[in-house]
Every structure is written in structure tokens, then in C-alpha cells.
Amino acid sequence: MRQQDNKIIFTGPVGAGKTTAIGSISEISPVSTDVQASDMTLNRKGETTIALDYGLMQLGDGVRVHLYGTPGQERFDFMWEIISKGAIGLIVLIDNSRPNPSGDLQFFLNAFKTLRTHAPLVIGVTKTDQAPQPSVEVYATLLEKFGLHPPILEVDPRNGDEVRQLLMALLFTIDPGLEG
């Protein structure tokens, strides 16, 4: 990856909104590798991502920020480490309507623990209109046990402004004094 290229990883369980979130802020039509779901994923959505989602933000002068969405299914976890190599930030989207969203969060924090050692983390909680609990406070209490205090924000992945706020939280986590 060239010096001028930088990437941010969106991860989370099936149906959390990774593909939608990337699509809502990408400046290109997001590249997606969704196929008809053929397993238990079908219970949650008709199509699912089998390789990755890709979006792009261009900052001018050839500087680009690549947005990668990981496949949500565990059987594709071998790809997660490959995709996350060199990433400057990790956004975990948690679908609050799933049976055990707190367990999902712990799973993905563990899956990306290598990336978390050197890249900031932001949690986006989706579908809180369908399932308000667990609340942000519950997630914060859980994360505090791991010594983590990341931004935890409710978001609608279809809303580009809210996805952008996730990214801004990521930037301010790195540097609260960041100017721009």
C-alpha cells in the first residue's frame, strides 16, 4: 500500500450495516461482493458479504482513505487479519437487534485485538430503534472491564452524517486537538 493510501476497517456481525455505512460515505459506488445467503445468515438478510466491501474517500493531491468492510461471518475470519493490516482505525458496528450483541462486541474486539494495539477503536451501535437495549451505558461498562474507553455512538448506517460522526470520533480519539 502506498504511503498516500490509508484505510479504515468496518467490522461487525452479519447485518450490522457495514456495507450500508461504507456506501453512505464513499465517494465512489462501493464495491461489494454480496451474494445470496445460503446459510443461517439468510435469517437476517437475503444477501451477505463474502469477501469485502470497499469504498473510498479522496482528500486531494492523490491522498486517499480506503474504507474496507469485512465479511461478517466467522468462517471468513481468515480475511480479517489480511484486510486490517496497516489500517489507521477500526470501527465496530454492533447490531442491537441480534440475540447477544454484547457477546458480538466481545467477539470482534478479540478478533481484532492485534489491530487495536496500534489503531483507535470506535463502536457504532445500530438498529437501536428496533432494540434499544443494551444501551450505550451497558456497552461502556462492559468495555471498561477491558480497560477500553472508546467512543460508543448510536448510528443509523443509512445516514451519512452519522457515519461521518463515527469517523470524526475516530480522529478525535487519536488527537482531541486535531484541527481541520
Binding site: 474517500m57 461521518r164 469517523l167 470524526m168 480522529l171 487519536i174 488527537d175 486535531l178 484541527e179
Partner: peptide, 13 residues
Amino acid sequence: RRGLLSRLLVRLR
């Protein structure tokens, strides 16, 4: 990478 981060912030805003 602060220069990058600043530019990304400008872009997001």
C-alpha cells in the same frame, strides 16, 4: 499522519 487526519477531518466536515 496528522496531516492526513486533518485533511480527513476537513473532508468529513
